[in-house]
Write a protein that binds this DNA or RNA. Structure first.
Lengths: 249, 249
DNA sequence: CGTTATGTTGACATTAATCAAGCACGGTGG
DNA sequence: CCACCGTGCTTGATTAATGTCAACATAACG
């Protein structure tokens, strides 16, 4: 996910500042903004567009993608409610964003956003946190892409999508995106995606393929297929941290 | 590169603050710190270690990597002089960092670093910029990894390494890292890396393979092999930007 | 109810991984 | 100075995986 998986951190309108509003967190900046609706497939902005606004996803799912010269499409992330779009604060958007499902967004002018953030140090903290998470997500995608087998990639993808489910730790993983989206995210073809899903179904790890979701039957098997996974399991870090002295000075 | 390609922005000790030093930019925080030397292969810190320090690379090259459960190694970036290590400001380092060549670093305590940055808004700006660049780099790697052929990956890798050369726009690209490092960065095997280099040499795009560098003979051919490339060429963005109205509200 | 999107499946081609030697450079010690 | 050894790199033969091309099935849409 190029998306920040950070959930909403809703409301909590705490301190109140002068002419500024009661901006408790980044989300509250968007709270009063009108909702804009986007139909599936509809673009929100394009890579290279002047970055005039920051968006917050209120509902639905979007894809962030980059197009290569020869027409290939690379999906660099999926965005979910609570995520911010265009947060990287460059002059131009880094990628194109399109609605996957029906989407509701709120937008905020980038300049004002920057001003607000500069004014309030707690917002700055939150923005750092977002950027940091977005960065981690981008790196996680890189790790995912360098996994060898199609099976491994898909197993990881399912776990990833499940993790984002709003707390619901059910076995049913929502997949609002098409197979082509999945393929372009994992760096493979639709055929291989399809075949691999069938294979996982045949081996009983998941239920027979549905169009827009996957039901995991053997979670542990799926986890072991996802295999050499690392992230998120690392809460304690019981590293040896031994003799390897830091070098001279 | 998980590295920020941002060059040094050296010295420039401008304004002077009270008990704080004349902190003109992030780099100047490190200026008075002693240099620490690391031999090739030596680790600086491990993924999961408590992030006690931020480092600035003064000289040499390092690799940032993550290890998967089954022992596979994924290099998420190479770091060069001027880059910062551990800038993501999490409680724990996100990846292991090891010296590739002989390296000189300066370290700065993370807490103090955060304090300094929080105190000076221009430092904050710079830190945002760094994070942003690091994020872009992580995304670029994802794009690189999802490229189909080995040839395409390597062509891009060479161009990438060349871009980082300190202004020297020569045809000789420095490669301080081993083939294994390259393989683990591009998500392929050493054999394929080796074979592909040989192939590029046979077709006259590069000179016969040297151990620690590549001489590009036909830059334009290399560029076309790198193909669907996007980033860095996009200065103007002459997008049509037409009828696609943003949706209702 | 036909038409288009999307998804599945099959046969085949191509690429890169794997297994296995062999080569070349750099360092060490005789 | 040279023989020796180890590491890193190259090359070859073979295999396994995924991409490609093509047909078909199914769901979605007007």
């Amino acid at each position: 996910m190029s998306a920040q998986v950070v959930p909403m951190q809703e409301g909590r309108t705490g301190a109140m500042c002068s002419q500024a509003l009661p901006v408790a967190d980044l989300s509250s900046l968007f709270a009063r903004r009108p909702v804009e609706r986007f139909a599936p497939g509809q673009p929100v902005f394009w890579e290279g567009d002047e970055a005039t606004h920051i968006f917050e996803v209120a509902d639905g799912m979007l894809r962030a993608l980059r197009l290569l010269g020869d027409g290939r499409r690379i999906i660099v992330g999926f965005l979910r409610p609570g995520d911010l779009l265009g947060v990287s604060l460059k002059e131009r958007y880094l990628y194109t964003v399109e609605a996957v499902s029906a989407v509701e967004l709120r937008r905020f002018p980038r300049r004002r956003f920057e001003d607000e953030v500069a004014r309030h140090s707690h917002l700055q903290q939150q923005l750092f946190s977002r950027l940091r998470d977005e960065m981690t997500a981008a790196q996680d995608q890189a790790v995912l892409l360098s996994r060898r087998s199609a099976e491994e990639k898909l197993a990881n993808f399912f776990l990833m999508m499940r993790r984002n489910e709003n707390c619901t730790r059910t076995a049913v993983v929502d997949l609002p995106m098409t197979r082509l989206d999945i393929a372009d995210y994992l760096g493979m073809t639709i055929e291989t995606v399809s075949r691999t899903i069938t294979k996982l179904a045949n081996s009983g790890v998941i239920a027979p393929p549905e169009r827009r979701s996957v039901t995991v039957l053997k979670m542990e098997t799926l986890r072991s297929l996802a295999d050499g996974d690392e992230s998120e399991h690392w809460m304690p870090s019981p590293m040896p941290r031994a003799q390897y002295a830091f070098a001279s000075a």
